[in-house]
Design a protein around this nucleic acid. Structure first.
Length: 274
DNA sequence: CCCTGCCTGCTG
DNA sequence: CAGCAGGCAGGG
């Protein structure tokens, strides 16, 4: 489900609700959600710890604990993370419940069970979750036309596939890959090695602008977030191409086309994007 | 490069 | 019923 803007939204909504909370106990319904560790051991490690903050890197979230340990998690396609009152209705696919001393609970709900949690101990380097393989954040100053060109100018892969590569820039998924390419007027199937100077420039500029824009469009109150079960994002009316195949291009009016690139569906304007 | 697996649910 | 879904890892 979520890409960087949604994951950042989750962090912004939940972090203020979690700071200072103490973990009473942890219930893991589906042990495979806890990666690289026994679920019982995971639960024991969290018990009694205070949550001091929440972080995000790419599409990963983390809960920072007072002893320096951290819980890294990834929502993958359908995961959602909620902070609920104890009596909040039980969602069908709730796989992890972290009960807090205040009576509230952190709940991880994931229909398809692709989401994962990892526990990284204090001082340990995280080499298991995938965070260590991530490229720069989209808001990093190092995201320059030269960086993109340097990394991609020899690649014969479609630029769309390159944008989805988390080791290049972390956090772009199928939706925002399409949206970014529409904004910069580059066809998703265009080979990276065929991009021109001006196109590297437009990409470097638009990647952070687009993601920042969608983070802002996602802003939501804790109440509405909970009511929407963590899956109601408000930016969808602002998506220009994703989910709009066959509809008129918002710029030129020609029908937007759907194609398959790197095994993922893509939507683009055949006239505006070259 | 493509393929598969991991899962459930929705759409046509 | 097949096909598809906003992700990613692993294998050939």
């Amino acid at each position: 489900m979520p890409e960087l803007p949604e994951v950042e939204t989750v962090r912004r909504v939940l972090e203020p609700q979690l700071g200072g909370e103490i973990i009473k106990d942890v219930q893991v319904g589906k042990p495979q959600i806890i990666a690289g560790m026994d679920a019982v051991e995971f639960a024991r490690a969290l018990q009694g710890r205070k949550i001091t903050g929440m972080g995000r890197r790419g599409k990963f979230l983390s809960l920072i604990l007072d002893n320096g340990d951290r819980v890294v998690l990834h929502l993958r396609m359908t995961g959602s993370l909620l902070v609920t009152p104890a009596d909040f209705e039980a969602e069908k696919h709730t796989h992890v419940v972290i009960r807090l001393e205040s009576g509230r609970q952190i709940r991880f709900i994931d229909q398809r069970r692709f989401g994962r949690f990892w526990l990284i101990r204090n001082g340990e380097e995280d080499t298991i979750s995938g965070i260590h393989k991530l490229g720069i954040e989209p808001f990093d100053k190092r995201l320059t036309p030269a960086y993109l060109k340097e990394r991609l100018y020899k690649r014969k892969k479609p630029i769309k596939e390159c944008l989805l590569d988390q080791t290049l820039v972390a956090g772009i998924g199928n939706i925002y890959g399409d949206e970014i390419l529409f904004r910069v007027r580059i066809a998703p199937e265009k080979k990276a090695c065929d991009l021109k100077e001006t196109e590297w420039k437009r990409l470097a500029k638009e990647i952070p602008l687009a993601l920042q824009y969608y983070i802002e469009k996602n802003e939501i109150s804790p109440e509405d977030y909970l009511a929407g079960k963590g899956g109601d994002y408000r930016n969808t009316p602002f998506l220009q191409v994703y989910g709009h195949a066959g509809e008129p291009c918002p710029v030129c009016g020609k029908p937007l086309k759907r194609s398959v690139i790197g095994g993922r569906s893509s939507v683009s304007c055949p006239k505006c994007q070259k």
